[in-house]
C-alpha cells in the first residue's frame, strides 16, 4: 500500500479546565490518501475542529495534545517543537479557516500576506514570490489578480477573501490541506463555486483534503470518504455514498434525517432528540447512548470501531442493518 498523505493515529487532545478534563479528541484515527477528500463531519463540540488544529499543533491552552501520532507523507510531525512545526505548517500541511472575515490580517495587504507564506519556507525573491501569488489567485478564479494583490482584506467580499485563503493554502503545494468549515460563512452560490474549485485543485495537484464541516450536503457533493465524529471519537467511517445511503451508526442516521431532502417536500424532518453531551466527566460507554433509541445495557461499555461492511466501519453495539434504514 502506498504511503498515505496524512495518517492520524489515536490522536488525543484534552482541555484541562477547572471543571475537569474535557477529552475533545479522544483517540481519533484516520488516513487520507493523495488526492483524496475526507469529509470530517460532526455537530458543534464533536471535536472536529480541535482535530484539525491538533494536526498542526495549533491547539491553544488550556487544550493540549496528550497522545497519538500524526504522519504526513510518512514523516511523524506530532510532538515537534514550535520551530520544527512551523516548517511543516503552510508548507506540507496548510489550513483554511472558517471565517474569511476574521482570518486575513486587516492591516496587511493581500500581497504581503501571500508573499510571506512563500518566503517563510523558501529563499526566493519578492518578485518571484509575487508572481507565484498572482498565479495562485488566478488559479482560484479571481479576476484581475494584480489589482487584488494590492487590496486590503476589507476591500474584498467574503467569497473573494475565502478564495484568497484557498490560494494562499495552495501556494506551497502542500501535501495536505485542512479546511475547517470554509464555506459556512458564505452564500450558497459562492459555496458551490468554491467547492467545485477546491475539488478540481485537489485532483489536479494530488493534494489530500480534510474538509471539516457539520453540513452533510456539502460533504455529499465533495468528499470521497466521510468520517463522522461524536463526542471526540469517530463513530463511523467509510466511502461517502455507502455512509450516506446505508449508515451503520444510529447517530449518522440521525444526522442524515435532520437534513432537508429536496425530493421530500412537506416531509417531516426528524431531529436527533437531546443535546450533544458535555465532554467533561463523560463516562465510559457509547457517548450517544443517552440519545439513541437502540441503546441497551451493552452500550455502557465503549464499543470498538468495527468494519461491518467492506471499507465501512462503525463504533456501535447495535449497528443499523440493511433492513432497518428503510423506515
Amino acid at each position: 500500500m502506498s504511503i498515505p498523505a496524512l495518517e492520524v493515529d489515536d490522536l488525543q487532545t484534552h482541555f484541562l479546565t477547572r471543571a475537569g478534563v474535557a477529552k475533545a479528541v479522544n483517540g481519533v484515527s484516520f488516513r487520507v490518501e493523495r488526492g483524496e477528500i475526507l469529509g470530517l463531519v460532526g455537530e458543534s463540540g464533536s471535536g472536529k475542529t480541535v482535530t484539525g488544529f491538533s494536526i498542526l499543533g495549533l491547539v491553544d491552552p488550556p487544550g493540549q495534545v496528550v497522545g497519538g501520532t500524526v504522519r504526513v507523507g510518512g514523516d511523524v510531525v506530532s510532538g515537534l517543537d514550535d520551530r520544527a512545526m512551523a516548517r511543516i505548517r503552510g508548507k506540507r500541511v496548510s489550513m483554511i479557516f472558517q471565517d474569511p472575515m476574521m482570518t486575513l490580517n486587516p492591516v496587511l495587504r493581500i500581497d504581503t500576506q501571500m508573499i510571506e507564506t512563500i518566503r517563510a519556507h523558501e529563499t526566493i525573491s519578492v518578485t518571484a514570490a509575487r508572481a507565484r501569488a498572482r498565479e495562485a489567485l488566478a488559479l482560484v478564479g479571481i479576476a484581475a489578480p494584480d489589482e487584488r494583490l494590492l487590496a486590503y482584506p476589507h476591500q474584498l467580499s467574503g467569497g473573494m477573501r475565502q478564495r484568497v485563503a484557498i490560494a494562499t493554502a495552495m501556494l506551497n503545494r502542500p501535501e495536505v490541506i485542512i479546511a475547517d468549515e470554509p464555506t459556512t460563512a458564505l452564500d450558497v452560490t459562492i459555496q458551490a463555486q468554491i467547492l467545485y474549485e477546491v475539488q478540481e485543485l485537489c485532483r489536479r495537484f494530488g493534494t489530500a483534503l480534510v474538509w471539516i464541516t457539520h453540513d452533510l450536503s456539502v460533504v455529499a457533493s465533495l468528499a470521497d470518504r466521510i468520517a463522522v465524529m461524536y463526542a471526540g471519537r469517530i463513530v463511523e467511517e467509510g466511502p461517502v455514498d455507502d455512509v450516506l445511503d446505508r449508515p451503520l451508526h444510529p447517530y449518522t442516521r440521525g444526522l442524515i434525517d435532520s437534513v432537508p431532502q429536496p425530493g421530500l417536500r412537506g416531509g417531516r424532518l426528524v431531529p436527533i432528540p437531546g443535546m450533544a453531551p458535555a465532554l467533561v466527566g463523560l463516562g465510559e460507554g457509547c457517548a450517544f447512548r443517552a440519545r439513541c433509541a437502540r441503546a441497551s445495557m451493552a452500550c455502557a461499555s465503549q464499543p470498538a470501531l468495527r468494519e461491518l461492511r467492506p471499507g465501512q466501519r462503525a463504533r456501535c453495539v447495535h449497528p443499523l442493518t440493511v433492513g432497518s434504514h428503510a423506515a
Binding site: L56, A86, G90, A120
Partner: peptide
Amino acid sequence: DYIKYARSKGLSRHRVVFVHAFRN
C-alpha cells in the same frame, strides 16, 4: 483568528508578533 492563521502558514514567531500583531 488572524494570528492563528498566520501561525498556520508557518511564519516565524518573530514575524507573527512583530508584523501581524504589532501593526494591529
